[in-house]
């Protein structure tokens, strides 16, 4: 697998975050501004240009024991600063499956 850092150019179209899965249990986490991971999207560090994105991703990749498979994902930031996922995939990663209760009895 090519490391995400080997991507020549990291282009982002709007506010973005870095997300990954926590190594020991796999849950969805977001990179915070304090160089750690949080399960809470509201604590994610927001990047707004490609240099910032690249730096945040580099630092995330380096923390391989903390979380795996980090990548940049789009978000929407409301006027009140509230962060929302920028696409359906990230929405599902944040709020869970859309299929209601699994395996009904």
């Amino acid at each position: 697998m090519t490391s995400p850092l080997e991507q020549k150019k990291i282009k982002i179209a709007g506010p973005s975050i870095v997300t990954a899965n926590r190594t020991w249990d796999g849950i969805v986490v977001y990179r915070t501004a304090t160089k750690s991971w949080s399960a809470d999207l509201s604590e994610a560090a927001i990047v707004r240009n490609s240099d910032e994105a690249k730096a945040l991703l580099a630092e995330s990749v380096a923390d391989d024991v903390g979380a795996i498979g980090p990548y940049i994902a789009p978000v929407q930031v409301g006027a009140d600063g509230k962060i929302e996922p920028g696409n359906l995939r990230e929405q599902i990663r944040r709020t869970g499956v859309t299929i209601g209760q699994s395996a009904q009895v």
């Binding site: 249990d25 796999g26 849950i27 498979g69």
Partner: peptide, 19 residues
């Protein structure tokens, strides 16, 4: 993770969206 991935795959362990 790069070293471990092939080992986990040999034991049926993938990474999915949530876990």
């Amino acid at each position: 993770e790069d070293e471990f991935k092939i080992l986990r795959l040999q034991n049926g362990v993938y990474l999915q969206l949530h876990a």
